[in-house]
């Protein structure tokens, strides 16, 4: 993203805030005034509730995405060793993939009860698919020519793994991880709305039931801002880590 784009992005945010401040007066039913939201933000920061809920949600996302990554890694290794295993897995994965992870929330609550576990499970489920597809794509992008060249130079199996296979797979796996993290964030909020007693999603549910509009908006905005920040951070590290990939495969610049 160039500077011009970024400036316009920020300008857009300011514009929306400006319209909001100008149009919405205090005391509205559906939408609080911007000043009201800012005041609630300060209060929630001061009490430490916002930070506590944020940390709870972030921890669940990290746990879920981490678990999903681990499972993908184990399955990918198995699928590489036994080709049939990968195909065997393909069928169920394709059928479960279109199911919105949220459909599983009631079942997760039935199994795990109220608390951290159902949210983590839903995040793991949601994050699994993009990470799995990324890793799979990565393996299919390994070029036979690169492996042949490595063998020509007498590369051992270990060097072929560390210097050819892993570098070929990681850009795609990382891309999957970024999408998985985004989807995981999506899932955690929804899961917390139903099956938790902390977290940003829980807060949104609680405050809106209490008709505390200002606080509800603070939490909604926090969810959006944190999600955007995560995506931005992941994108930046992707660009930095896989510069070669952007240059040679994607043909950027």
């Amino acid at each position: 993203m160039n500077r011009r784009e970024r400036t316009l992005n920020i300008l857009g945010v300011l514009l929306v805030c400006g319209v909001w401040a100008a149009v919405v007066k205090p005391g509205g039913v559906f939408m609080p005034a911007l000043s009201d939201v800012a005041g609630q933000f300060a209060a929630l920061m001061k009490s430490g509730l916002l930070l506590k809920d944020t940390l709870a949600s972030v921890a669940r996302v990290l746990a879920g995405v981490g678990f999903a990554t681990l499972v993908v890694m184990v399955l990918a290794v198995l699928a590489v060793i036994i080709k049939e295993f990968g195909f065997l897995l393909g069928g169920p994965v394709e059928i479960l993939r279109p199911v919105p992870p949220l459909a599983w929330v009631p079942i997760a609550i039935l199994i795990f009860g109220i608390g951290d576990a159902p949210a983590i499970a839903i995040v793991a489920l949601g994050a699994f698919f993009p990470i799995w597809l990324g890793v799979q794509q990565g393996f299919s992008e390994i070029r036979l020519q690169h492996l042949l060249a490595a063998r020509s130079f007498g590369a051992t199996a270990r060097i072929r793994l560390t210097d050819v296979v892993i570098p070929s797979v990681t850009p795609y796996a990382f891309h999957g991880l970024r999408l998985g993290l985004g989807l995981g964030w999506f899932c955690v909020v929804a899961a917390e709305m139903m099956g938790a007693n902390s977290g940003l999603g829980y807060g949104v549910q609680l405050f809106s039931l209490n008709l505390e509009l200002g606080k509800t908006y603070v939490y909604i905005l926090a969810i959006g801002l944190l999600g955007a920040a995560m995506n931005y951070g992941m994108r930046a590290s992707e660009t930095w880590l896989f510069k070669w990939h952007r240059l040679s495969v994607l043909g950027d610049e």
């Binding site: 020519q145 690169h146 042949l148 060249a149 020509s152 570098p167 070929s168 990939h245 240059l247």
Partner: peptide, 19 residues
């Protein structure tokens, strides 16, 4: 089989783009 005593230079270079 392949051996480092006779490496190949390829038409499309076939360098490792990540290195």
């Amino acid at each position: 089989g392949p051996a480092p005593t006779r490496p190949v230079v390829f038409q499309d270079y076939n360098l490792f783009p990540w290195m």
